[in-house]
């Protein structure tokens, strides 16, 4: 690893820490950095309300932003390298649409059968479980197809078709759903990083750790895939094995993040490109770490921006990531020689 790579890592982590503090301090009530730091270190808070806001609301939310940023970027990078396609992202295998289907069944059908708990709100765990089941179902179907499919490109098309099919089912459910349930589902679809209990944050961290294991063991294989499947094979890499590791890893990462936070757009596609441009490398030993840092930072930043100043309300995270992500992708595409550099 070169010196500039290490400096960029160091700089990225420093900015990430700063962004983390900024994210916690910013909101309907501003909390100074010094108070957050002393509070987190010595557990010495000036006001009980501040402690409540930081520890039970803003801290977990910032943590979820970092976790989701890492998970989505790492799955996006895996997809882009495996399929050798710059537009691939964590959602191309349809797993997140599957999670959406699970949640749609719960919210849209569940409400019809009067399953709504305390009036109009579903318990967060029920949403997570429904999302995970839906994601796992599509993961299973994609795996069954992957078993028969020979080349990567076919798998990519099949994944996209699965996503389209699942979205169609969601549309049908939405069409027949009641107004109240439809609004709930639409809001879920805009994504949310907040409102999670610590138990849920721990569960998400656990899933993420699990999903990252296959990545760590296949860094070498992803580098080999840079020259395409046939070259990878000639260098002793088994593309079929890598395909399974990729399906499992992105299935767990993207699936669980969607189940917990809703579908979060653009981060997974845009961040690996940003990391490639900033770190100027194609080496996955660097890129996986670089994408994690960039992804965490980007989502943290988006979440900070989504806080409307002086109001308790915040913009949906998905709208903000898309608003930031779309110009990034456009900028990338019109950048000279972009396709050559990928």
């Amino acid at each position: 690893m070169t010196r500039s790579t290490l400096w960029l890592f160091f700089g990225g982590i420093v900015i990430l820490l700063f962004g983390f503090l900024l994210n916690i301090s910013y909101g309907s009530i501003s909390i100074p950095f010094s108070e957050i730091i002393s509070g987190l270190i010595s557990n010495d808070w000036e006001k009980e309300s501040t402690r409540q806001i930081v520890l039970n609301f803003r801290f977990p939310k910032a943590l979820v932003a970092i976790l989701a940023g890492i998970g989505l970027s790492v799955s996006g990078l895996q997809m882009q390298t495996f399929f050798r396609n710059p537009l691939a992202g964590p959602y191309v295998l349809g797993i997140s649409s599957g999670a959406g289907l699970g949640v749609a069944f719960l919210m849209l059908l569940g409400s019809a059968f009067g399953m709504m708990s305390d009036g109009a709100v579903f318990s967060p765990w029920s949403i997570v479980i429904a999302g995970s089941l839906g994601g796992a179902l599509v993961l299973l179907l994609v795996s069954l197809v992957a078993w028969r499919v020979k080349d990567g490109m076919t798998l990519l098309i099949v994944g996209l078709m699965f996503g389209a099919g699942v979205s169609a089912i969601i549309s049908v459910l939405s069409y027949f759903a009641g107004a109240e349930a439809l609004k709930l589902f639409t809001i879920w679809g805009m994504g949310s990083l907040g409102g999670m209990s610590w138990a849920q944050v721990y569960a998400l961290s656990g899933m993420l750790a699990l999903g990252l294991i296959p990545v760590i063991t296949s860094v070498k294989a992803y580098n080999g895939m840079l020259l395409g499947e046939r070259y990878a094979q000639s260098m002793g890499i088994d593309p079929i094995r890598l395909r399974w590791l990729m399906i499992i890893s992105t299935g767990i990462l993207a699936g669980s993040i969607t189940a917990f936070c809703g579908p979060i757009a653009f981060v997974g596609i845009a961040v690996p490109h940003l990391a490639r441009i900033v770190w100027k490398t194609a080496d996955h030993k660097v890129l996986f770490v670089a994408s994690s840092i960039t992804g965490a930072l980007l989502l943290l930043l988006c979440d900070t921006v989504s806080q409307l100043p002086g109001m308790a309300e915040s913009l949906p995270i998905n709208a903000v990531t898309s608003l930031i992500g779309a110009p990034v992708v456009i900028g990338l595409v019109i950048r000279k020689n972009f396709s050559k550099e990928f």
Partner: peptide
């Protein structure tokens, strides 16, 4: 080892 006719290569390598 092999050199093939096809190549898809990341330019930033």
């Amino acid at each position: 080892s092999v050199v093939l006719t096809e190549y898809s290569m990341p330019g930033n390598l």
